[in-house]
Simulated assay, not measured.
Amino acid sequence: MKAAKSAKTEKAVKPASSASSAANANPAKAPKEARAVKTAKTAPASAAAPEKKPRAKKEKEKVVRDSFTMPKSDYAKIAELKQRCLDAGISVKKSELLRAGLNLLAVSPAKRLIAAVQELEAVKTGRPAKT
């Protein structure tokens, strides 16, 4: 008895689901037709409007993740520079500060670049020893 009832309920469910899928198929066509009508109505209005210049899209450059070693005093300078930017009303990240420094060095004369590099203390590369 139970098997017969479950078979009848399955049959009842299947036609309902196929009917609902058929009902879902018809509304999908209606918006497309409505879109076609809307674009036909808006086409003359857009032709009357002045043409806008397309924006030149700047391609996003891929980023590279890297790590490096620096003395604590230089790391403290980053915190100091971040605070100076905050005082000026600008929130800045460490990576942005480093990139800004690179840009400044890139436009500086070769003598200034060499002097800045020679002022740096040599640092042993790699991870610091755990203490």
Rank of each mutant, 00 (worst) to 15 (best):
K2H: 13
S67Q: 04
A7H: 11
K58A: 11
V64S: 08
L120E: 10
T9F: 07
D74M: 13
D74I: 11
A40D: 01
A56T: 13
A110Q: 07
E96G: 02
A47M: 01
E80A: 08
P71Q: 07
P54D: 11
E51D: 10
T69A: 00
A76V: 05
K5C: 11
R112Q: 02
A129Y: 07
A129Q: 06
D66H: 15
P27T: 06
T131H: 10
A76T: 06
T42Q: 09
K60P: 04
A3W: 03
A16K: 13
S95F: 04
S46P: 04
E61R: 12
Q83V: 12
N24A: 09
F68S: 00
N103S: 10
G101D: 05
L104Y: 14
A76G: 08
S18R: 05
N103L: 07
P27I: 06
K124N: 05
P50C: 07
K77E: 07
A28G: 03
K29H: 03
A34R: 05
P54G: 12
V64M: 02
E33D: 15
A30G: 06
K5W: 12
A22W: 05
T125P: 10
I78C: 04
R35Y: 02
V13W: 05
K2L: 15
V37C: 05
I78D: 04
V37E: 14
K38Q: 09
G126T: 09
F68M: 06
K2Q: 14
K52M: 11
K53I: 12
V63L: 03
A22G: 07
G126I: 05
V117Y: 01
S18P: 03
I78H: 05
A115S: 00
T131D: 05
A100C: 13
K124I: 08
A36W: 04
L98R: 12
S20E: 10
K124W: 00
K11G: 14
P50A: 13
K124S: 11
P44V: 02
S21G: 09
A56N: 06
I114A: 08
K5H: 13
P128C: 02
Q83H: 06
L120A: 14
A79V: 07
L113A: 04
A7P: 01
K82W: 03
E61A: 11
A22K: 04
R55M: 09
A23G: 10
A88R: 15
R55Q: 12
E59W: 05
G89A: 01
I78N: 03
A36Y: 03
P71W: 00
V37N: 09
P15H: 12
V123K: 11
K41G: 00
S6Q: 13
R35L: 07
P27G: 01
K8T: 10
A40P: 02
P31A: 14
K130D: 07
A12K: 10
K38A: 14
I114N: 00
K5L: 11
E51C: 02
N24Q: 08
A25P: 01
E121S: 15
A7M: 11
L113R: 03
P54T: 00
K29N: 08
